[in-house]
Design a protein around this nucleic acid. Structure first.
Lengths: 148, 148
DNA sequence: TTTTTTGTGGGGAATTGTGGGGAAATGTGT
DNA sequence: ACACATTTCCCCACAATTCCCCACAAAAAA
């Protein structure tokens, strides 16, 4: 079971290249998983990186719940799959973020990787910082969720 | 059950390394737990150290209650893991505090470890000192909580 | 006092991260 | 088909950080 942990700040150069953090690369290799998939998050303004095996797994799960003859459900599936790219790691250990996705997530020079269990999220640093600005709300939600 | 007790002052060097107090290390080892997790406290201006097993337990607990396809619940999970890092103990028994977190907690050379039951807090010494100045509020809260 | 454990400091190698040049590949319009 | 711009890829150089090692001070134990 893959488990990415940690938060790494990095810089994207003008060419759209970002060093893929060594911690995560090790985690990836430990799973014998080399390839990454990238897509825009459905809800949030960030990018999601999947080890290919995790991606396939989620795809299977989704597919199994959808009726392929139902137009609306088929549309959901299409939206999920469309816009996904494979993301090779270059000789320097860097990844190249497609322009399309850079814009979608409003990535500037400063970005942040966030280990999210079995996926990794990639945020514009400024956007990520503002995430942590709402401790009160989080506190309440957590309190409600974990109350037992 | 882990239970950390005590206040220990220590010094952080220019590289951001701090000796992890021997008392706590023993407690940790007694649990067969080697690794630590670190994050900024949600409410206070300090850092929290979790034995990895405690952290994983909380994470699993949370994960099992959340639906990853639900935007709001995914956000809760994200906020929970955002800012967390793994914190290995080096050959000298020291930990290396990530720059990002040093700044968040305004750590200088003088720091203080505070045993908080199953976690350990790490404060800038000056900040910790000024906290003890408010016994009145503590009294009230305790009174309200323990009234039965 | 001597020995052991705990805590501080620093040098330097190895790894990680950043930047840029320019060749190859791809796409665009004429 | 051709010239041109854009994007991708492969290479090198270097800066920054982390890791590993050793030395030693300070405190506690023997």
């Amino acid at each position: 079971m893959v488990r990415f942990i940690g938060n790494i700040d990095a810089k994207m150069d003008e060419k759209g290249r970002v060093f893929f953090p060594a911690v995560f690369r090790r985690t990836l290799q430990k799973e014998g998983d080399e390839a990454l998939m990238i897509r825009k998050d459905i809800h949030q303004n960030c990018l999601v990186l999947y080890p290919k095996s995790v991606w396939n797994q989620q795809l299977d799960e989704l597919r199994s719940r959808l009726n392929r003859w139902n137009a609306q459900q088929q549309m959901v599936f299409r939206q999920f799959v469309a816009g996904v790219d494979e993301l090779p790691i270059d000789g320097n250990g860097r990844i190249l973020i497609p322009k399309r996705l850079q814009q979608m997530a409003a990535l500037q020079a400063s970005v942040r990787f966030i280990g999210m269990d079995d996926t990794i999220e990639l945020w514009a640093k400024e956007t990520a910082d503002s995430l942590l600005d709402n401790p009160a709300a989080l506190g309440e939600t957590l309190e409600a969720l974990m109350d037992f």
